[in-house]
Nucleic acid binder design. Structure first.
Lengths: 238, 238
DNA sequence: GCAGAATCTGCGGGTTCCCGCAAGACAAGT
DNA sequence: ACTTGTCTTGCGGGAACCCGCAGATTCTGC
């Protein structure tokens, strides 16, 4: 049995290595990669079926790496090991999980015990394990208590990239007005209002403000933006 | 001699603890804090003169914590220990350093040797030590090769918060037109142009696009935004 | 002190954004 | 078939944004 660790921080890497040795004595080979790109390559080359993946790495982040790995071998078991539980990450992960694939999502702040348990559950029992806090986000994300619908999220991303309404309309094949409607919807969900706060008529530029609060509330993050930017470039030159 | 370690990741914390023991045998007391707020409190309570500070923590980030610590005891020696060399962090740090204070800035990717050397230099020799890569950013930041001037950076932040031109004018005590001039300047520096290519008239919303590229180029980051948001709230209710 | 550069400010216009109003499209429920 | 709800599209207007032009102000170096 082989395990691949994809993680850019050497400390965390060796910690994981240790945890794997302790939790999975039947594991006789542990490979390491220090970014998403070399992770993909190693996974392909050595046909890894068990991967521990950090999100948020330079060169290529964990979500992209996982996507290409799964595209080549959908039965790969991947345990995501992340710093925080940003909505953007959770959304990103659950967006790329193939039908019936087994994966896990544990936070770096989790205890040794939790990590080892997750390792055994995911890699040996093929059981999906998702941390409680992450689970919370996931629910909110699918339902729409305070989270956004897919349509709203997508338009948020487009706006955040700096596209005009017209450009978004063309890209999404909608009329100008529809795009503006969705924007309206977005502003409501995010509770963007004009601040009629007494004398301070410090108004907001709604479209910009929406992105700002999305960033502050971790609905958006830089990695998600980078991904979107790349997709945009592909779209433009086609 | 006492040293305070402020760092939210337990692994990194114990690693630092180890490094301090190895590099500073004359140190007989090592305290730890797991976020900026408790870091401030411990520093105050125990009158620490030597602090190792992570940037990017929950609860209160390293820059704010350092600022309040320095406000109370400007002769405190602080060694910043950060993940990446975002322009926003470097700028944030050099903005709050008091006159003649001694500090250091090393990256987490640096070698053991570098870290230990920095520890001795800063804490024992009162010498400022700044990592090469960080130094690079700092230069660019002060000069303006690809970095922004202070005026440009400030307006960038205000725009990113979602303020309108008018609001910014009021806040910065400028005329509307001046604000727009600075914006123009900003767009130039960031190379924001319309018409990404011929037939695709997918135009950009310049103000939004500027923020997007600033985020992508790490000129801005979420922490800087959070700080700015808090300052804005203070300003509004005054 | 003076010329030159950089910055601040007002005017005017073209464009984009924000949004109320209202008419059509489609699905689902009674 | 009628209604109810959600989503889309068009029209129109007021506000905000982007920006060229030009005069006024402030900041430089000599």
């Amino acid at each position: 049995m082989k395990v691949l660790i994809v993680e850019d921080d050497p400390l965390h890497r060796s910690y994981l290595h240790e945890a794997v040795r302790a939790a999975l004595p039947e594991c006789d080979m542990v490979l390491e990669a220090e970014n998403g790109l070399s992770g993909e390559i190693q996974a392909r080359k050595s046909r890894m079926e068990h991967v521990i993946m950090d999100l948020q790495m330079s060169e290529r982040n964990g979500i992209e790496a996982a996507r290409t790995i799964w595209r080549e071998r959908p039965d790969t078991k991947i345990l995501f090991w992340s710093n925080y539980s940003d909505e953007a990450y959770v959304r990103g992960v659950s967006r790329i999980v193939p039908e019936g694939a087994t994966y896990g999502y544990v936070l770096k702040s989790a205890s040794d015990e939790r990590l080892k348990l997750a390792l055994r559950s995911v890699f040996m029992e093929s059981q999906c394990v998702i941390d409680r806090e992450v689970r919370g986000i996931q629910q909110k994300s699918l339902g729409n208590a305070h989270g956004l619908s897919d349509a709203e999220y997508e338009i948020l991303v487009d706006v955040a990239l700096g596209l005009t309404d017209k450009a978004i309309a063309r890209r999404k094949k909608l009329s100008l007005r529809s795009v503006q409607n969705r924007l309206q919807q977005l502003y409501e969900k995010l509770e963007i209002y004009q601040i009629p706060n007494a004398q301070t008529e410090g108004w907001y530029n709604l479209r910009m403000r929406a992105v700002a609060v999305a960033l502050l509330r971790k609905i958006l993050n830089t990695s998600a933006l980078e991904r979107a930017e790349r997709e945009l470039r592909d779209f433009v030159q086609s």
